[in-house]
Design a protein around this nucleic acid. Structure first.
Lengths: 188, 188
DNA sequence: AGGGTTTTCGACTCGCGGGCATAAACTATG
DNA sequence: CATAGTTTATGCCCGCGAGTCGAAAACCCT
């Protein structure tokens, strides 16, 4: 949970990017999204306003962390995160929702990936296995991903080489604007 | 766009509810949701932090407004809203999205309503007509609304009396947690 | 060359959203 | 009281998209 104070005249997002770069060495943020703000009353003599962000970085772009840092899965977090537990839960829930109806995975996946790798990213976030076949068909039909033409060498255990894919857009696109009811019936 | 300053020690949501009650006489807020925050640099000598909220109130619960207040549709807003135009657009977009995959309309509709009335609420937000029949079937299938058993008297022009419905839950429920991929396959 | 492994492609099923036609229920009029 | 007009409710059909499954393709190792 890297963070810090905002300088006067600085935008909130700019402050977040500055802290990300200074404290964990992350400059290539795929997607940065504000979560929520709340006034923290933990310090009676100090008046703080917390603004939390959700930052998505690509798999493989490892941030520079202190040497004694340990990674924990979001399913089994240690109890150390005193006030951050709620923020982590909200961020996770938000990300789970976004993955289902947007191309938010563009910020999590590497620039080129196989359907298996992308499905693994989804599984890591959603918590259950997704079918690489269906994933490719759904995202491909909406035009969110496209085959690059390249192929990936098979792994150590053999197997057919997987086709490489890439996201067509690198900004957030909400795929299904209205899911339940009559769309505007666009003539054409 | 009612609003104001936050008192020290006051929560942001509490401040929002206080300003809603004091300035427009709205105490029964069906749903209150934080939109986004940004540091306002319009005043060079003052350091302001804007936190905007989206408040949904029931149709019919008219707020107490100054006598010279005019209502404007969100489609044709006057140019007076200098910095609020963006906030209004974001709030509208957020509400449109929420209506499609949640029961956010519980905060907009009166406690008991007919399918026609609910469809009118949807049309007002989405901007196009929705079918009362389909609306009732979809929301009923997901268990979001249920018939109360009562009926509404027919209007002046006659017609079959409409059945009364009510939302089963009065807190936000996201109906389709994951739309695209394999659900957790809940056994039972 | 053959077995094992992984990916890809096609066909099939199933449930849901949407539309349409018809029935039901009420009001107003003569 | 009968009829026309209006609005709501119900049932049926259709199309589409997601999900599953099986077979083929392509690769590695022995």
């Amino acid at each position: 949970m890297p963070g810090g104070f905002v300088r006067q005249g600085e935008s909130l997002e700019g402050a977040m990017r500055r802290h990300l770069a200074e404290k964990v060495g992350v400059t290539d943020v795929g997607h940065l999204e504000q979560l929520d703000s709340h006034s923290a009353d933990t310090h009676p003599e100090l008046w703080l306003l917390d603004v939390s962000y959700l930052a998505l970085i690509a798999r493989g772009a490892e941030p520079q962390l202190p040497p004694d840092t340990e990674w924990h899965g979001v399913e089994a977090l240690p109890k150390i995160a005193f006030g951050h537990a709620g923020a982590i839960a909200r961020a996770h829930e938000r990300l789970r929702g976004k993955l289902s109806y947007s191309n938010a995975a563009f910020a999590l996946a590497p620039p080129r990936f196989t359907l298996r790798e992308l499905a693994d990213v989804y599984e890591a976030v959603l918590g259950y296995a997704v079918s690489p076949t269906n994933l490719g068909r759904v995202l491909g039909r909406d035009g969110l991903i496209a085959a690059t033409g390249g192929h990936r060498r098979a792994g150590a255990a053999g197997g057919r080489p997987a086709a490489e894919f890439a996201f067509t857009r690198r900004e957030l696109v909400v795929s299904r604007p209205l899911a339940a009811f009559k769309p505007p019936e666009d003539a054409g």
